[in-house]
Amino acid sequence: MIAHAGLAPLGSPDVQAMPVLRPSTPEVSLQTIAERLAGKVIADRRADLLILSAEALAWQGHPDAALKASRGAADITQQSAGDLRRRTLAVGVSADVALRVGGADAADACAAFVHAVAGEQPFSWLRYVVASAMQAIAVYQRSHCQAGTRMLAGLLGKVEADTCLSTMLAAAASVMERGCTPGAVLPPLAGLVPPLPGLLLVPDLSSEATSVGPADIVEAFAGRVRLHPAAHACGLTVASASAPGRLGERNGRC
Protein backbone atom coordinates (compact mmCIF):
# COMPACT_ATOMS: atom_id res chain seq x y z
CA MET A 1 0.00 0.00 0.00
CA ILE A 2 1.32 3.46 -0.89
CA ALA A 3 1.59 6.17 1.73
CA HIS A 4 0.63 9.38 -0.04
CA ALA A 5 2.05 12.60 1.31
CA GLY A 6 -0.60 14.88 2.74
CA LEU A 7 -3.18 12.19 3.39
CA ALA A 8 -4.18 11.60 6.98
CA PRO A 9 -3.73 7.98 8.10
CA LEU A 10 -6.65 5.98 9.38
CA GLY A 11 -7.16 6.72 13.05
CA SER A 12 -5.94 10.29 12.68
CA PRO A 13 -8.05 12.98 14.39
CA ASP A 14 -8.39 14.57 10.93
CA VAL A 15 -10.48 11.60 9.83
CA GLN A 16 -13.82 11.37 11.60
CA ALA A 17 -16.17 8.41 11.42
CA MET A 18 -15.16 7.19 7.98
CA PRO A 19 -18.06 5.27 6.42
CA VAL A 20 -17.54 1.58 5.75
CA LEU A 21 -17.76 1.11 2.00
CA ARG A 22 -17.79 -2.23 0.25
CA PRO A 23 -17.68 -1.52 -3.51
CA SER A 24 -18.70 -5.04 -4.50
CA THR A 25 -20.89 -3.86 -7.37
CA PRO A 26 -20.03 -1.69 -10.39
CA GLU A 27 -22.63 0.86 -9.26
CA VAL A 28 -20.42 1.88 -6.34
CA SER A 29 -17.84 3.93 -8.24
CA LEU A 30 -14.57 5.45 -7.13
CA GLN A 31 -16.19 8.85 -7.56
CA THR A 32 -18.97 7.94 -5.13
CA ILE A 33 -16.44 6.68 -2.60
CA ALA A 34 -14.34 9.82 -2.91
CA GLU A 35 -17.34 12.10 -2.50
CA ARG A 36 -18.52 10.26 0.60
CA LEU A 37 -15.07 10.29 2.15
CA ALA A 38 -14.51 13.92 1.22
CA GLY A 39 -17.36 15.03 3.44
CA LYS A 40 -15.62 13.56 6.48
CA VAL A 41 -12.16 15.13 6.22
CA ILE A 42 -10.66 18.60 6.33
CA ALA A 43 -10.43 20.65 3.14
CA ASP A 44 -6.89 19.89 2.02
CA ARG A 45 -7.48 16.15 2.44
CA ARG A 46 -10.67 16.50 0.42
CA ALA A 47 -8.63 17.90 -2.47
CA ASP A 48 -6.14 15.02 -2.21
CA LEU A 49 -8.91 12.45 -2.22
CA LEU A 50 -10.55 14.01 -5.26
CA ILE A 51 -7.24 14.20 -7.13
CA LEU A 52 -6.53 10.53 -6.37
CA SER A 53 -10.04 9.64 -7.43
CA ALA A 54 -9.68 11.61 -10.68
CA GLU A 55 -6.40 9.86 -11.52
CA ALA A 56 -7.84 6.42 -10.84
CA LEU A 57 -11.00 7.13 -12.81
CA ALA A 58 -9.02 8.42 -15.81
CA TRP A 59 -6.78 5.34 -15.63
CA GLN A 60 -9.80 3.02 -15.61
CA GLY A 61 -11.49 4.75 -18.54
CA HIS A 62 -14.05 7.05 -16.91
CA PRO A 63 -13.10 10.51 -18.25
CA ASP A 64 -16.32 12.35 -17.36
CA ALA A 65 -16.17 11.28 -13.72
CA ALA A 66 -12.42 11.99 -13.64
CA LEU A 67 -12.95 15.51 -14.94
CA LYS A 68 -15.69 16.11 -12.38
CA ALA A 69 -13.38 15.01 -9.57
CA SER A 70 -10.45 17.12 -10.81
CA ARG A 71 -12.68 20.18 -11.09
CA GLY A 72 -13.92 19.55 -7.57
CA ALA A 73 -10.33 19.50 -6.35
CA ALA A 74 -9.56 22.70 -8.29
CA ASP A 75 -12.57 24.43 -6.71
CA ILE A 76 -11.31 23.51 -3.24
CA THR A 77 -7.76 24.68 -3.92
CA GLN A 78 -8.97 28.01 -5.32
CA GLN A 79 -10.18 28.82 -1.82
CA SER A 80 -6.61 28.73 -0.50
CA ALA A 81 -4.12 31.09 -2.16
CA GLY A 82 -1.18 29.10 -0.80
CA ASP A 83 -2.34 25.70 -2.07
CA LEU A 84 -0.42 25.93 -5.34
CA ARG A 85 0.82 22.32 -5.34
CA ARG A 86 -2.65 20.80 -5.13
CA ARG A 87 -3.95 23.27 -7.70
CA THR A 88 -1.17 22.19 -10.04
CA LEU A 89 -2.02 18.52 -9.50
CA ALA A 90 -5.68 19.21 -10.31
CA VAL A 91 -4.64 21.01 -13.51
CA GLY A 92 -2.45 18.03 -14.38
CA VAL A 93 -5.24 15.49 -14.01
CA SER A 94 -7.58 17.63 -16.13
CA ALA A 95 -4.88 17.86 -18.81
CA ASP A 96 -4.42 14.09 -18.76
CA VAL A 97 -8.15 13.55 -19.23
CA ALA A 98 -8.11 15.87 -22.25
CA LEU A 99 -5.08 14.03 -23.66
CA ARG A 100 -6.63 10.60 -23.09
CA VAL A 101 -9.92 11.46 -24.84
CA GLY A 102 -8.21 13.38 -27.65
CA GLY A 103 -10.07 16.59 -26.94
CA ALA A 104 -9.58 19.67 -29.08
CA ASP A 105 -8.39 21.47 -25.94
CA ALA A 106 -5.69 18.88 -25.15
CA ALA A 107 -2.74 21.01 -26.27
CA ASP A 108 -3.98 24.06 -24.37
CA ALA A 109 -4.71 21.97 -21.26
CA CYS A 110 -1.22 20.46 -21.33
CA ALA A 111 0.35 23.89 -21.89
CA ALA A 112 -1.55 25.14 -18.83
CA PHE A 113 -0.09 22.23 -16.85
CA VAL A 114 3.45 23.13 -17.96
CA HIS A 115 2.84 26.74 -16.91
CA ALA A 116 1.47 25.68 -13.53
CA VAL A 117 4.41 23.36 -12.85
CA ALA A 118 6.91 26.07 -13.81
CA GLY A 119 5.51 28.27 -11.04
CA GLU A 120 5.68 25.64 -8.31
CA GLN A 121 7.87 26.12 -5.25
CA PRO A 122 9.70 23.92 -4.62
CA PHE A 123 10.14 23.14 -8.30
CA SER A 124 9.51 19.53 -9.36
CA TRP A 125 11.75 18.45 -12.25
CA LEU A 126 9.84 15.17 -12.64
CA ARG A 127 6.50 16.95 -12.89
CA TYR A 128 7.96 19.47 -15.36
CA VAL A 129 9.22 16.68 -17.63
CA VAL A 130 5.88 14.87 -17.41
CA ALA A 131 3.91 18.02 -18.24
CA SER A 132 6.26 18.88 -21.13
CA ALA A 133 5.99 15.33 -22.53
CA MET A 134 2.20 15.57 -22.36
CA GLN A 135 2.32 18.86 -24.27
CA ALA A 136 4.55 17.32 -26.96
CA ILE A 137 2.14 14.39 -27.35
CA ALA A 138 -0.85 16.73 -27.61
CA VAL A 139 0.87 18.82 -30.29
CA TYR A 140 1.83 15.61 -32.17
CA GLN A 141 -1.79 14.43 -32.17
CA ARG A 142 -3.73 17.66 -32.49
CA SER A 143 -1.73 20.05 -34.65
CA HIS A 144 1.68 19.08 -36.07
CA CYS A 145 3.42 15.71 -35.88
CA GLN A 146 6.85 17.16 -36.66
CA ALA A 147 6.61 19.85 -34.00
CA GLY A 148 5.50 17.34 -31.37
CA THR A 149 8.31 14.97 -32.30
CA ARG A 150 10.89 17.77 -32.03
CA MET A 151 9.51 18.87 -28.67
CA LEU A 152 9.83 15.37 -27.26
CA ALA A 153 13.31 14.87 -28.72
CA GLY A 154 14.46 18.14 -27.15
CA LEU A 155 13.05 17.06 -23.80
CA LEU A 156 14.75 13.67 -24.02
CA GLY A 157 18.05 15.45 -24.57
CA LYS A 158 17.68 17.25 -21.24
CA VAL A 159 16.98 14.14 -19.17
CA GLU A 160 19.68 12.01 -17.58
CA ALA A 161 20.40 8.96 -19.74
CA ASP A 162 19.71 5.38 -18.67
CA THR A 163 17.00 6.28 -16.19
CA CYS A 164 13.38 5.23 -16.00
CA LEU A 165 12.35 8.70 -17.15
CA SER A 166 14.63 8.65 -20.20
CA THR A 167 13.36 5.15 -21.07
CA MET A 168 9.77 6.38 -20.91
CA LEU A 169 10.53 9.34 -23.19
CA ALA A 170 12.52 7.19 -25.63
CA ALA A 171 9.65 4.71 -25.90
CA ALA A 172 7.26 7.55 -26.76
CA ALA A 173 9.71 9.02 -29.29
CA SER A 174 9.98 5.62 -30.98
CA VAL A 175 6.19 5.36 -31.34
CA MET A 176 6.04 8.90 -32.75
CA GLU A 177 8.70 8.06 -35.33
CA ARG A 178 6.92 4.87 -36.37
CA GLY A 179 3.70 6.84 -36.62
CA CYS A 180 5.26 8.87 -39.42
CA THR A 181 6.83 5.90 -41.22
CA PRO A 182 5.03 4.60 -44.36
CA GLY A 183 3.82 1.04 -43.95
CA ALA A 184 4.67 0.90 -40.25
CA VAL A 185 2.41 -1.07 -37.93
CA LEU A 186 2.00 0.55 -34.56
CA PRO A 187 2.01 -1.90 -31.66
CA PRO A 188 -1.43 -2.32 -30.10
CA LEU A 189 -2.16 -1.04 -26.63
CA ALA A 190 -1.56 -3.77 -24.08
CA GLY A 191 -4.18 -3.11 -21.45
CA LEU A 192 -4.85 0.22 -19.79
CA VAL A 193 -2.56 3.20 -20.27
CA PRO A 194 -0.88 3.65 -16.87
CA PRO A 195 -1.18 6.73 -14.67
CA LEU A 196 1.36 9.50 -14.98
CA PRO A 197 4.21 9.78 -12.50
CA GLY A 198 4.57 13.01 -10.55
CA LEU A 199 0.97 13.30 -9.38
CA LEU A 200 -0.53 11.59 -6.31
CA LEU A 201 -1.24 8.09 -7.51
CA VAL A 202 2.37 7.56 -8.64
CA PRO A 203 4.26 10.37 -6.85
CA ASP A 204 7.70 9.39 -8.12
CA LEU A 205 9.50 6.65 -10.04
CA SER A 206 10.88 4.64 -7.15
CA SER A 207 9.77 1.01 -6.98
CA GLU A 208 8.24 1.69 -3.57
CA ALA A 209 6.13 4.61 -4.81
CA THR A 210 4.57 3.18 -7.93
CA SER A 211 1.43 1.12 -7.62
CA VAL A 212 1.41 -0.16 -11.20
CA GLY A 213 4.94 -1.52 -11.58
CA PRO A 214 8.00 -0.13 -13.39
CA ALA A 215 7.30 -2.18 -16.53
CA ASP A 216 3.87 -0.57 -16.89
CA ILE A 217 5.12 2.92 -16.06
CA VAL A 218 7.49 2.75 -19.04
CA GLU A 219 4.38 2.83 -21.23
CA ALA A 220 2.96 5.98 -19.61
CA PHE A 221 3.98 8.30 -22.49
CA ALA A 222 4.13 5.78 -25.35
CA GLY A 223 0.66 4.48 -24.50
CA ARG A 224 -0.75 7.99 -24.70
CA VAL A 225 0.88 8.52 -28.11
CA ARG A 226 -0.87 5.38 -29.37
CA LEU A 227 -4.29 6.48 -28.13
CA HIS A 228 -4.89 8.83 -31.08
CA PRO A 229 -3.42 9.28 -34.58
CA ALA A 230 -0.92 11.99 -35.38
CA ALA A 231 -1.79 15.24 -37.12
CA HIS A 232 0.34 14.46 -40.17
CA ALA A 233 2.01 17.68 -41.20
CA CYS A 234 4.63 15.38 -42.73
CA GLY A 235 2.33 14.45 -45.61
CA LEU A 236 1.66 10.88 -44.51
CA THR A 237 -1.87 9.68 -45.14
CA VAL A 238 -3.65 6.76 -43.54
CA ALA A 239 -5.04 4.45 -46.20
CA SER A 240 -8.63 3.57 -45.37
CA ALA A 241 -8.27 0.13 -46.89
CA SER A 242 -5.08 -0.76 -45.08
CA ALA A 243 -4.84 -3.25 -42.25
CA PRO A 244 -5.61 -2.01 -38.73
CA GLY A 245 -2.67 -0.09 -37.38
CA ARG A 246 -0.88 0.05 -40.75
CA LEU A 247 -0.05 3.49 -42.09
CA GLY A 248 -0.46 4.57 -45.68
CA GLU A 249 1.80 6.26 -48.18
CA ARG A 250 3.74 9.42 -47.51
CA ASN A 251 3.22 12.47 -49.68
CA GLY A 252 5.96 14.35 -47.91
CA ARG A 253 8.69 13.70 -45.37
CA CYS A 254 8.76 14.08 -41.61
Results as ranks from 00 to 15, higher is better:
residue 60 Q to W: 11
residue 245 G to W: 01
residue 197 P to E: 02
residue 218 V to T: 03
residue 250 R to S: 14
residue 159 V to P: 00
residue 189 L to W: 01
residue 192 L to T: 06
residue 62 H to W: 09
residue 176 M to I: 13
residue 37 L to M: 08
residue 124 S to P: 10
residue 250 R to I: 14
residue 89 L to W: 14
residue 53 S to F: 02
residue 143 S to G: 04
residue 219 E to Q: 15
residue 54 A to R: 07
residue 72 G to E: 01
residue 57 L to S: 09
residue 78 Q to I: 06
residue 63 P to N: 07
residue 153 A to E: 15
residue 201 L to F: 13
residue 229 P to N: 09
residue 120 E to V: 05
residue 89 L to D: 01
residue 2 I to S: 08
residue 185 V to Y: 05
residue 226 R to G: 05
residue 172 A to N: 04
residue 212 V to Q: 09
residue 65 A to N: 02
residue 162 D to I: 00
residue 88 T to E: 00
residue 45 R to G: 07
residue 167 T to Y: 11
residue 130 V to C: 08
residue 46 R to E: 06
residue 243 A to N: 13
residue 135 Q to N: 14
residue 3 A to V: 15
residue 96 D to H: 03
residue 123 F to P: 04
residue 16 Q to S: 02
residue 21 L to R: 11
residue 169 L to I: 13
residue 66 A to Y: 00
residue 19 P to S: 03
residue 132 S to D: 10
residue 38 A to C: 05
residue 194 P to G: 09
residue 75 D to S: 02
residue 208 E to S: 14
residue 235 G to A: 13
residue 191 G to F: 08
residue 243 A to S: 13
residue 30 L to R: 12
residue 179 G to H: 10
residue 66 A to S: 12
residue 234 C to T: 10
residue 152 L to E: 06
residue 199 L to C: 12
residue 228 H to S: 09
residue 201 L to N: 08
residue 36 R to V: 11
residue 24 S to P: 00
residue 114 V to Q: 11
residue 75 D to F: 06
residue 131 A to P: 06
residue 100 R to T: 15
residue 77 T to G: 01
residue 250 R to F: 00
residue 177 E to W: 04
residue 62 H to C: 07
residue 15 V to M: 11
residue 172 A to T: 06
residue 134 M to H: 09
residue 242 S to L: 11
residue 85 R to F: 04
residue 112 A to P: 00
residue 152 L to Q: 01
residue 242 S to K: 11
residue 78 Q to C: 00
residue 41 V to T: 12
residue 173 A to Y: 02
residue 18 M to L: 15
residue 233 A to D: 15
residue 211 S to P: 06
residue 253 R to A: 09
residue 37 L to A: 03
residue 39 G to A: 05
residue 158 K to S: 13
residue 124 S to V: 12
residue 73 A to D: 07
residue 11 G to R: 08
residue 149 T to F: 03
residue 20 V to C: 05
residue 71 R to V: 03
residue 111 A to P: 07
residue 222 A to K: 07
residue 14 D to S: 13
residue 166 S to L: 07
residue 248 G to L: 14
residue 105 D to R: 00
residue 74 A to E: 10
residue 87 R to M: 05
residue 27 E to S: 14
residue 156 L to N: 04
residue 27 E to K: 13
residue 86 R to E: 06
residue 205 L to Y: 00
residue 177 E to R: 12
residue 189 L to A: 11
residue 34 A to R: 04
residue 39 G to H: 05
residue 73 A to H: 08
residue 248 G to T: 04
residue 25 T to E: 14
residue 197 P to V: 01
residue 253 R to E: 02
